[in-house]
Design a protein around this nucleic acid. Structure first.
Lengths: 135, 135
DNA sequence: TGCAAATCAGATCGAAACAGTCCGATTGAG
DNA sequence: CTCAATCGGACTGTTTCGATCTGATTTGCA
């Protein structure tokens, strides 16, 4: 019931990126220096966020990253899912994986689906704009 | 953003225990057989739940476990905290641990406190009674 | 046109926590 | 008094996480 350090770092870095304005050039080196995240880890995170479609990447000397959408269109759930994978409290929720020993007589599962939706809603309701203080 | 298998098992076992009535004798062996959780793991879980005060334990031949409170007074948050430790999304929330590199200029932290409260509230609002179907 | 600096991207390695198992301590029954 | 049944804590293997290092790609400049 705790998000990993990687996801934590990602949230902080995305908030820092949002404070730089929507169309600024953002290198992993710069953001690492601002946030205190170790540079190699920051590189790995930026790459994963770009792969998830939250950032657009440009290679080369003048390259860097840019926010793919506006800060209002990126939620906490988006960032967490990009780094940690889909938000599912139990492994009997996310699609096909059904290795639970109960698997049908489980009377708890339907209730957990409701709880999972509530948690995910709480995370999806927080936008990057509100986190960074940028309108 | 996912609870561990141990916590998942604990929820299922507690729900099964609630269905047996509030004052029934519950051995780890019996609950393991009902829920499909491996017996040694079930023993470990029951011990941890008892240590957290959710169950009262009795040793010896006729011993076993009993729900410490009524099923209405036990929430999902209680069970998860008993197994996984305190519910805190980031390590900068739970009390004394302050090893974040930002530590003061972090503009994200206050917002995360709000989010953390929302998630915890969603979990604390679900009682064991509603999970097990027992009124 | 060729070189070089800067940047992203993938692969690799070590460490911590998790999940599971086993054995000892304690209690009640026969 | 002996034995069986149960809880309690300690141990080990495995998986995932976290961090680091090296290679591929692009632009700017001489």
């Amino acid at each position: 019931m705790r998000l990993t350090s990687l996801a934590d770092y990602a949230v902080v870095m995305m908030a820092a990126a949002a404070r730089h304005g929507g169309d600024a050039r953002l290198s992993a080196t710069m953001l690492a220096g601002e946030t205190g995240v170790p540079l190699p880890t920051a590189q790995k995170l930026m790459g994963r966020l770009a792969g998830a479609g939250l950032l657009t990447s440009a290679r080369g000397t003048g390259g860097g990253f840019t926010l793919a959408r506006g800060p209002e269109g990126i939620s906490l759930a988006d960032i967490i899912e990009a780094v940690e994978g889909p938000i599912a409290m139990t492994n009997c929720i996310e699609g096909a994986a059904h290795d639970c020993a109960l698997e049908g007589s489980c009377r708890v599962k339907p209730h957990l689906n409701v709880v999972n939706g509530a948690v995910r809603g709480a995370l999806a309701g927080v936008s990057l704009a509100s986190l960074s203080g940028v309108a």
